[in-house]
Design a protein around this nucleic acid. Structure first.
Lengths: 326, 326
DNA sequence: CTGAAAGCGCTTACAG
DNA sequence: CTGAAAGCGCTTACAG
């Protein structure tokens, strides 16, 4: 698209230099309020919009931020990423950046976008520490923010309040009468697992329920069966599932065992999803605020880009959705 | 990001002009095979990548294509858009374009991206004919492709084979014994509704089942109840739901009436989703190929951009997933 | 406070 | 086949 107007047209029409017009727009450099106003008025009148790419060339910027999200919807949790995207897009627009999407974390795609110099910074969801992707990004010196926990101090991450949410949910279960709880979760190496487990344990301690048990590394139906059976035989009154996948498997097992929910066992999930809300019975779950998370991640990465201060943050917004299962 | 190498560095090192290097890269203009090879070799050796934004400025291009998808997941069909995005991103990358995402169809966002001249073309999913957005895009002369049917010849659209899929599903139901069918759907003004209904009717005619009935404009549980009750009293043996939303309401009603599926009534859905596969019983449904659809849409829009021929297309790929409901 | 000029890294007539 | 030069539309020292 050829520009309809250029900065030169505006300058000519006003009898000033392009420099002046540029300064009026950016609000940078010395310029009289009077001149500034005249320029801005004409700009508005003509509907002139500076070319982002020309500005980009001059400033060695693209005003794009790259976002990487998994293309395969493990755990059907894509709705959460969608929310993140909404937050990212909105915040980016507010600072006049755009969002370039890359689906799937194949390294070749990331490399391409980086090598083409199409972005000023990157956000990656569900990225793994020290993964090839992160190495590539950081090596290139591109500002980077991870959505999700990080152990690594050197990368800025924006995360849900997993620990806090797990604690609140746990306390809630205790408060409505459950004394023997079980936490059921996936890969113990994941930070999200560690954080949620920490919250669970903290809450148990705080409420003085000592017999609680933790079952991790549940990856398939058999391992879920074993964990559920063990929990049940220990007299478990409430099961806290770490995510929707585990919850699904747990619910299957409970149904197979003919366990009445919530009468015999209450069930809660630390990660809400469409599925969780449609289980039989619907399961009480923690709903995180993906929009906030995305917008925060975007804020941090743009801050880095623009040389402002940036820091890892835990977004405190979440909600416990009470459903029939408790 | 400042470029590590520029075209000038490569030219200098080789003792040729920037023109020559540029020609070697683009494959355009006269250049000896010999020279070309030397240039390309050094480029590879140095890992030089031309700056997309400089190229963009020179050619008045951005090499970005803008994609608009709804931010609110009406019908929880976002997984389909996700698939589309995968297809779009992949195809775009294959032609060295990137994808700028806009979530939500608020006109202000579209306007911003257009005015900033950040894209060479646009793809919109679930866009409405003659909507403010489409007017804005086409007025600006930006190449545009719609994902979803269009009545309007002037806009290129890429769509699922809705009619064909509906016909195949219908024939299949007849072939396994159903003689009295009912089609249940939403807004009769939507093209998707018209197309699916057309396929249904065509199949009924072809198979010679005359008593089939069509119930449209089902928007809520009461209207679904009425339609289902009417269909049932007409001796309906198979219900074809146009989409997952309608299907959900239909299944609720059938459950409330205590109708056995598939024994008393078979149920099928013309649009698969996670929900549909997890109903009780799971419902047979049509699964469209979102990746192909997206990739095709992207192909068309890039063709327009690059002055090649583009045309509306119906993507024939879909699959009927047989489940317990039939 | 204002402007002429160089520069960002490419492309592309035009001339040779 | 090859290159010098102008141009894409901005920004930004530098000089005034």
């Amino acid at each position: 698209m050829t520009q309809e107007y250029t900065i030169g047209d505006i300058a000519a029409e006003l009898g000033v230099s392009k420099t002046t017009v540029s300064r009026a727009i950016s609000g940078t450099g010395r310029i009289s309020g009077e001149t500034r106003k005249r320029v801005l008025e004409l700009i508005k009148e003509r509907g002139y919009r500076p070319s982002a790419v020309a500005k980009g060339l001059a400033k060695s910027r693209t005003y794009n931020i790259g976002v990487v999200i998994p293309s395969v919807d493990v755990g059907r949790e894509f709705s959460f990423f969608r929310e993140c995207m909404v937050g990212i897009c909105e915040y980016a627009a507010s600072r006049d950046y755009d969002v370039i999407l890359t689906m799937g974390d194949e390294i070749s795609k990331i490399r391409r976008i980086l090598e083409n110099s199409k972005v000023d910074g990157m956000i990656a969801a569900r990225s793994e520490e020290g993964s090839e992707m992160e190495t590539l990004i950081t090596e290139r010196g591109v500002p980077f923010v991870r959505i999700g926990a990080s152990g690594d101090e050197s990368v800025i991450s924006v995360d849900n309040a997993n620990s806090l949410a797990a604690a609140e949910m746990t306390e809630r279960l205790v408060d409505i009468g459950a004394r023997r709880l079980a936490l059921l979760g996936g890969d113990e190496r994941h930070f999200v697992t560690k954080n949620r487990a920490a919250g669970f344990k903290r809450a148990c301690k705080k409420r003085g329920v000592g017999e609680s048990r933790v079952f991790l590394n549940i990856f398939d139906q058999p391992s879920a069966d074993r964990a559920v059976t063990a929990a049940l035989s220990g007299g478990c009154e409430a099961m806290v599932c770490m995510d929707n996948i585990v919850c699904d498997m747990v619910m299957q097992t409970l149904a197979a065992h003919g366990v009445a929910i919530p009468e015999e066992v209450r069930v809660a999930c630390l990660y809400d999803s469409v599925i969780v809300g449609r289980m039989e019975p619907p399961v009480t779950a923690v709903r995180f605020d993906g929009v906030k998370l995305g917008s925060e991640a975007c804020r941090q990465v743009i801050n880095i880009i623009e040389g402002e201060k940036a820091e890892s943050v835990v977004v405190p917004d979440f909600e416990i959705i009470i459903r029939k299962s408790t």
